[in-house]
Amino acid sequence: MSEAIRLEDAAAARGRHVIWEHVSLTVEQGEFVAVLGSNGAGKSTFLDVVLGLLPLHHGSARILGRAPGDANAEIGYLPQRHNFDASARIRGVDVVRLGLDGARWGVPLPGRPARARKERLREVIALVGAESYAERPIGALSGGEQQRLLIAQALVRRPRLLLLDEPLDSLDLTNQAGVAALVQRICRDEGVAVLLVAHDVNPILGYLDRVVYFAGGTAVAGTPAEVITSETLSRLYGAPVEVLRTGDGRLVVVGVPEPPFVHGSRHAH
């Protein structure tokens, strides 16, 4: 039961097109995991599988010990997105609240539950540091501010698993570092397993327990030191790929072939 995610020889397909296959991995409760790979490699598809929105084409999956989709009440999700546009006239705190009871039918009644709800909202907004702007219309906030509120929305029901699809996208370096540190803190303090999809591993490198790397029509999982190496990535891409470490400890991956791959059949020129 301490496993958050287990995939065994899993394959995902959209229509007749197999996106990835032969994927076996586990994610433990409380782990911070990066999901990496080029555009179109199937990272978002992986999250769709975890949420049960896309049934597996082959193989099996257990999410929080249950079938995909059955545990969604315990999963917080932040999809890959563009920001809310400027005319979105609904307060940040209302957007966070949708995560709490937005899926409930019927009219909310005042009383004890309502007060507990208010208290939880206040708590989670403080957790992401959004107190000063949570009452403003979400469309009027910056990308980083919106991102923090959306993370609060994903967290508000105390999930055991948090799925964040490119939450650092479109943030400046300071905000990337800030949101990355926030997610790490949540992961550590609340014991939540986090899957964070990213294009650049460097802002989160220091925090990671594991990496799932999608390429070449499949994925490998392991510690960053095992996966982000010239050897593993070259094997995965089926082309010579080099991982360089800069003076300040950043990782740079060079030589990644252009998508789209015909998976498995691509070779070095």
Partner: peptide, 23 residues
């Protein structure tokens, strides 16, 4: 409308997250 107001608000503001939450 009263019965469906909250899920409808969720779906209107953020369809992807709402779908994942079972709306």
């Amino acid at each position: 409308l009263a019965v469906g107001a909250r899920p409808l608000l969720f779906a209107s503001v953020d369809a992807d997250v709402a779908r994942a939450a079972g709306v």
